[in-house]
Design a protein around this nucleic acid. Sequence first.
DNA 1: CAGTATCCCCATAGATACTG
DNA 2: CAGTATCTATGGGGATACTG
Lengths: 167, 167
Amino acid sequence: MTMEDGTSMSPGYCRDTDYDALQWDTREDCEVRQILDRIADKWSLLVIALLDQRSLRFTELRRTIDGVSQRMLTRTLRQLERDGLVSRTVYPAVPPRVDYALTPMGVTLHHTIRALVTWTEEHQNEIAHARAAYDIRAVAEQEGAEREAAERDAIAREVLAGGSRTR
Amino acid sequence: MTMEDGTSMSPGYCRDTDYDALQWDTREDCEVRQILDRIADKWSLLVIALLDQRSLRFTELRRTIDGVSQRMLTRTLRQLERDGLVSRTVYPAVPPRVDYALTPMGVTLHHTIRALVTWTEEHQNEIAHARAAYDIRAVAEQEGAEREAAERDAIAREVLAGGSRTR
DNA sequence: CAGTATCCCCATAGATACTG
DNA sequence: CAGTATCTATGGGGATACTG
């Protein structure tokens, strides 16, 4: 058991000392943080989405996801299994066969995540607009600052030239 | 404009060529990925949660969040502002005063996120159980493997000893 | 087939110092 | 007060090779 990942085994709860409803996310050993890190990592969400349709074998997942390395797929599946979101079934046979499926809890998580996906779909245009507007503003400010700097330079030069002339 | 972050400005949509409902998450330039990365990063969620109550100044956020560096808070706020989730208001005064607040879109995102938080709260015990069970199984398998290895060793030694005796 | 075991890179977080 | 600039360092994740 290499225990390569960091999720500590001992406490696992938000520090309840000084608990503040606003601080449920205060990093390290907070449950919300951990789940968020899991679903936001590069592959977990994909795996969950795929397994929602039907159970799949290791290689089926590997082929379907494309881009994932064996190492990462294994790690992802182990994490999900450890959290009770995915079940792993080994069929003793040659060649070996291992099926992965969503647990009931995994299914409920997927439902919840769908809400977020829906939100994103509904707001992607608004977000794109906001970004475009922001970038335009940023460019404008940039240019404004440069123009002001140039003006200050010009004035400074003029003053210096005038100073040497009046001397 | 340093453009330090990586979100590309050009396409911004999931590759629609060969679009597959299961592949909405296929990394890079996918909207879902980007939003997920945003809300899952270390500070954004905290900021959104705090601003949902009322608008706050830079230093108020900095003090309240504790652990966040100036650099990270600035970056987080800039990202959220660029995505149109947070608004930034500068009051020209000495000393300078800058207020941050959730935009209407930011509020809706916060609602959606709450669902995820609620899910986590409802399932944290189940997750903790699953982890404990998994870890126990892992230790058991570990020990089992070691015992088998020891047995194989013993048998191998016995065979060797017998072989030399019968010779 | 379904994994471990290793090595390595580089994208980010954090610390520190400076500024309008 | 509200930032920017610069440097360093940690670890997530990829490539590769090997195994029951």
